[in-house]
Amino acid sequence: MNALEILDRLVGFPSVVGTPNDGIVAWIKDYAEGCGATVTVLPAPEGDRANLFATVGPTHVPGYILSGHMDVVPALETTWTSDPFCLRAEGDLLFGRGTSDMKGFLAAALAALPAVANMPLARPLHLAFSYDEEAGCRGVPHLIHRLPELCAKPMGAIIGEPSGLRAIRAHKGKAAAQVEIRGRSGHSSRPDQGLNAIHAFAGVLLAAVRAGEALQSSRLDPSFEPPYSSLQVGTVSGGQAVNIIPDSLTAEIEARAITGVSPADLLEPVRLAAVALEQRGYQTQWALLSSYPALSLAADAPLAQLMEELTGAETLAAVSYGTEAGLYQAAGIDAIICGPGDIARAHRANEFIRVDELAACHTMIERLAETLRD
């Protein structure tokens, strides 16, 4: 099968983040094993999802990982002009949810497997496909934890997020948390008898706003846009009716951190503001939803130099979005971002990838495999 045919199959699986992914995992496993790869399905703690790890070549020596995620964001936009889970070709454009982010990369990697399997490899090429990346890289930590039993420590990991096939050496880290505030309900005519959870959240919200503003003038890294860490409250829900004292509120907060800054630590002022409400009779719960560190790879690192040779272009310094690359680096494995498509097309209606982008990625992966030959 070529990359376009494989992409057609992959897009057909509605593997939306946070939902079961047994269908796409089973199909990739069967295909990869048919190409001669050794495949391990790694069931996840959630019980209805799994990571997948495949290897071509010897496992006892270091090789390279091609890392990507099988999940996609929901396709709820009303402006789709075709079924988002049915690949549609229009000229050299291929439309469908996940075409750029990032089933295009998975398709190119899988399409290269037959040729790679026929090479006399001295070092292995691995495929590491994870779940729930779109929820803050929740799946890949479990995969990385299992790597020592699956292969020798890799020389590097290439994360196939859409980058126009330009290798990227750095990205921000991210942490997301949920806070729940519980007060006491009652009739709005007697506010003295209740505890208004929405009013209480005002102090937490103010702490988040002030913390975010302070970051703009603190530690800076000009590699990023913007050059500072950031913090925002992304969702707020609570209350039943205007004449009822709201007894509960739930909010989600995220922080994005430049290199050298812990994203989870950036959330601490918000957490402390929430905890302080307990002194006023409120109950609070704080849960860290996801967290991954920033990536920072030196321009002269062997992996960066290799990617320049494979792509024929200089590496880019940084992007502000995040990937699992920082988790690989934290595990002692050099990592870099490089994949087909454009991040600007992701997470929106009529997402697409170009046929030539798929072909270029396929070629890059085969060139990578050539470096692993005897």
Results as ranks from 00 to 15, higher is better:
residue 265 D to H: 12
residue 92 D to M: 02
residue 238 G to V: 02
residue 290 S to N: 14
residue 128 A to D: 05
residue 54 A to T: 06
residue 352 F to H: 14
residue 58 P to Y: 05
residue 187 H to C: 05
residue 370 E to F: 07
residue 17 V to P: 00
residue 202 A to H: 12
residue 268 E to A: 11
residue 348 R to T: 10
residue 360 A to T: 14
residue 101 D to L: 06
residue 245 I to K: 08
residue 345 R to P: 01
residue 115 A to W: 00
residue 90 E to Y: 06
residue 176 A to V: 11
residue 101 D to H: 05
residue 150 L to S: 04
residue 313 A to S: 13
residue 123 R to K: 13
residue 116 V to R: 05
residue 37 A to L: 15
residue 347 H to C: 03
residue 44 A to H: 14
residue 282 Y to K: 04
residue 210 R to H: 13
residue 374 D to K: 11
residue 232 Q to R: 07
residue 94 L to C: 14
residue 326 G to F: 11
residue 46 E to Y: 04
residue 356 D to N: 08
residue 365 I to D: 07
residue 76 L to W: 01
residue 250 T to Y: 00
residue 227 P to S: 11
residue 48 D to V: 13
residue 37 A to D: 11
residue 145 H to D: 14
residue 68 G to Y: 13
residue 352 F to Y: 15
residue 196 N to F: 03
residue 76 L to N: 15
residue 333 I to D: 07
residue 84 P to L: 11
residue 10 L to S: 02
residue 252 E to R: 15
residue 199 H to E: 15
residue 243 N to H: 12
residue 94 L to E: 03
residue 72 V to N: 09
residue 242 V to C: 09
residue 185 S to A: 15
residue 296 S to V: 00
residue 200 A to E: 13
residue 103 K to T: 00
residue 165 L to N: 11
residue 124 P to Q: 08
residue 142 H to P: 02
residue 48 D to P: 01
residue 349 A to P: 01
residue 105 F to L: 09
residue 48 D to M: 03
residue 32 A to V: 07
residue 253 I to R: 02
residue 84 P to R: 10
residue 338 C to T: 00
residue 193 Q to W: 11
residue 99 T to Q: 09
residue 321 Y to V: 11
residue 163 S to W: 04
residue 293 P to W: 09
residue 17 V to I: 05
residue 281 G to Y: 07
residue 101 D to M: 09
residue 316 L to I: 00
residue 265 D to G: 01
residue 163 S to N: 10
residue 357 E to G: 09
residue 159 I to L: 15
residue 233 V to C: 06
residue 34 G to S: 09
residue 75 A to N: 06
residue 327 L to Q: 14
residue 147 L to N: 06
residue 83 D to G: 11
residue 169 R to T: 01
residue 145 H to N: 14
residue 27 W to L: 05
residue 20 P to G: 10
residue 114 P to I: 00
residue 210 R to A: 10
residue 313 A to L: 14
residue 334 D to F: 01
residue 307 M to L: 15
residue 93 L to P: 01
residue 247 D to W: 08
residue 57 G to M: 06
residue 259 T to H: 14
residue 371 T to P: 01
residue 11 V to A: 10
residue 320 S to F: 03
residue 283 Q to S: 14
residue 204 V to A: 04
residue 164 G to R: 12
residue 293 P to C: 05
residue 307 M to P: 01
residue 66 L to S: 04
residue 325 A to F: 07
residue 150 L to I: 03
residue 242 V to A: 15
residue 17 V to N: 14
residue 58 P to R: 05
residue 154 P to I: 08
residue 263 P to I: 04
residue 257 A to M: 07
residue 150 L to T: 02
residue 15 S to W: 06
residue 36 G to V: 01
residue 205 L to R: 13
residue 213 E to W: 10
residue 206 L to R: 13
residue 222 P to F: 00
residue 264 A to G: 01
residue 283 Q to W: 02
residue 344 A to D: 13
residue 132 D to R: 06
residue 281 G to V: 12
residue 238 G to C: 01
residue 204 V to S: 06
residue 77 E to Y: 09
residue 173 G to T: 10
residue 57 G to C: 05
residue 316 L to M: 08
residue 16 V to R: 04
residue 126 H to S: 08
residue 129 F to Y: 12
residue 284 T to V: 14
residue 145 H to F: 05
residue 123 R to A: 10
residue 72 V to K: 11
residue 198 I to H: 00
residue 353 I to A: 02
